[in-house]
């Protein structure tokens, strides 16, 4: 398996406070990496370091190297806009933009300069199908995205990311506000999508990581405690903290 991301000694400071401590890990392509850990463990900060979303907030500073296909994304001259076209992100709260379902999906492609209507139509159908919602909305593409239910909005967000044809998909607790059925649909979509994409999934739900992640990484207080094949992390963790967390005996 190819190494997609190679993160070397990544430290992140927020307003001078160290919140991610020298994290090093390699992420392979065509699989799901689950990231688990309690609130405040640095999971989201880590995830957002991978598409440089952190730097949009004031007070952010990163040290170390994050290599995407061998190129340092924090290196001089690496353009954040180009990076974000390759590395898409689905946020914890579903955010449909205040425009039609169709326009939501083609937002990324339009930014990239695709104007051909047939091509856009094709992308919409492909992406919505891959997000398991084409049949639900194919007759209502003109409807405002804001009128979809929460679960549908989150799948719309996934479809919107897919329409950019990215290489990596980052998901930040994508199911935290969803009911079990919507969650199942998202998980089904992700399991299918991992054949084509590298998927990194931050989740507060350890069971979700156990269900769909191939590899799992456990973060605690800004440090990577351990990472390995999901089955091993859940059945034979090396560190006591990991064991405590996955068995729910934490704290």
């Amino acid at each position: 398996m190819d190494c997609k991301f190679d993160i070397q000694d990544l430290s992140v400071y927020w307003r001078g406070n160290l919140s991610l401590k020298k994290v090093s890990l390699k992420i392979s392509s065509s699989q799901i990496l689950g990231i688990i850990g309690p609130a405040g463990s640095g999971k989201t900060t880590f995830l957002r370091s991978l598409d440089r979303m952190n730097e949009l907030e004031p007070g952010f500073k990163a040290e170390g190297r994050v290599l995407l296909d061998g190129e340092d994304i924090y290196g001089a001259g690496y353009d954040a806009v180009t990076l974000r076209k390759k590395v898409g992100m689905v946020f914890a709260l579903p955010v449909a933009l205040p425009m039609s379902v169709y326009e939501n999906v083609v937002y990324g492609p339009r930014l990239a300069g695709i104007r051909n209507h047939d091509r856009l139509d094709e992308l919409v159908e492909q992406s919505l199908t891959a997000a398991f919602m084409w049949n639900e909305v194919k007759d209502r593409l003109d409807m405002s995205g804001l009128r979809l239910s929460g679960g549908q909005q989150q799948r719309l967000c996934l479809a919107r990311v897919l329409a950019m044809e990215p290489e990596v998909i980052l998901l930040d607790e994508p199911c935290s506000g969803l009911d079990p059925i919507s969650t199942a649909k998202i998980e089904e979509a992700l399991t299918e999508l991992k054949k084509k994409y590298t998927i990194i999934l931050v989740t507060n739900n350890t069971k979700q990581a156990a269900r769909i992640a191939d590899q799992t990484a456990f973060f605690l207080m800004g440090e990577l405690i351990e990472m390995g094949v999901t089955d091993r992390i859940f059945t034979a963790p090396v560190h006591k903290q990991t064991d405590d967390y996955v068995t729910g005996r934490f704290g």
Partner: peptide, 27 residues
């Protein structure tokens, strides 16, 4: 204009100007 709209726009590879033109000004 909600901050989340800006985040989504940037995360989809928009420049600041594209975000202003397509999200901020219409809203």
């Amino acid at each position: 204009v909600p901050k989340s709209y800006r985040q989504v726009s940037f995360s989809l590879g928009a420049t600041r100007w594209q975000t202003v033109k397509r999200i901020i000004l219409p809203n």
